[in-house]
């Protein structure tokens, strides 16, 4: 069991220890970057002591919230909150433009949204190893049937993957999937690699 320290009977911010200054004025001085220089504060050991304590407190401040988060101090007890948010944002998904689909049904007006096409491209990437589709853009007059459309896919890869082979395979798979699901005159699929090791520091630290 760790011995927990007792709060000290005196503090550098006690009025008796401030050499006539106040916590307010010392905080202001600290906030101003200690300029312009105030001789009465700089030459007072007690005021210096108090300033140092205020500066230390400022340094640890963000850590307190991080510690609360790490301990799940205020976190919801279950996952319901996530479901509630997902339910709410599901209806607000940014679907983008409508891409008409040719069909033989008279009078029917069928289309697929740009967002759905992006989801198809993501799915294709997710079925492959070692890469992630980050972003997907459709360039061209997608709303006009038969107009040529370019698809640009931005991906990141995990370390150690054969990037040339992976991008070629992704391009081929995207072409196949788009031809299968969307009636679109695909003129090209461009694959751009943004990052060749997407396991960043934040994710590694977890």
């Amino acid at each position: 069991m760790t011995e927990t320290p007792e709060p000290s009977p005196t503090s550098p911010l006690d009025a008796a220890n401030l050499d006539g200054h106040t916590v307010e004025s010392l905080s202001d001085y600290l906030d101003s970057g200690r300029t312009p220089r105030i001789e009465a504060i700089e030459s007072s050991p007690a005021a210096q002591n108090a300033l140092a304590a205020l500066a230390r407190l400022r340094m640890v401040a963000p850590r307190v919230i991080d510690a609360d988060a790490a301990a799940d101090q205020f976190a919801p007890r279950n996952d319901h909150w996530i479901k509630r948010i997902l339910d709410q944002i599901g209806v607000q998904a940014n679907a983008g433009r409508d891409i008409p689909i040719s069909h033989d049904v008279p009078g029917a007006d069928l289309s697929i949204s740009e967002g759905a096409v992006r989801a198809i491209v993501r799915e294709v990437g997710d079925d492959m190893e070692g890469l992630l589709v980050e972003r997907c853009r459709l360039d061209g007059d997608v709303e006009t049937p038969g107009a040529p459309v370019d698809i640009t896919v931005e991906i990141s890869t995990f370390e150690g993957i054969d990037i040339a082979r992976a991008t070629a395979e992704l391009r081929e798979r995207v072409e196949r999937a788009i031809t299968l699901h969307v009636d679109m005159a695909l003129s090209s699929v461009i694959v751009r690699v943004r990052d060749t090791d997407l396991t960043g520091d934040e994710a590694r630290a977890r």
């Binding site: 993501r122 990437g125 997710d126 079925d127 492959m128 190893e129 070692g130 890469l131 992630l132 589709v133 980050e134 972003r135 931005e154 990141s156 995990f158 150690g160 993957i161 990052d195 997407l198 396991t199 960043g200 520091d201 934040e202 994710a203």
Partner: peptide
């Protein structure tokens, strides 16, 4: 290690996740 794409999303960095 070559991670399968589908499962590796949770391991990706903030920028990648946020971009998606």
């Amino acid at each position: 290690v070559s991670l399968p794409g589908r499962d590796s999303l949770g391991h990706a960095d903030d920028r990648t996740i946020a971009t998606r």
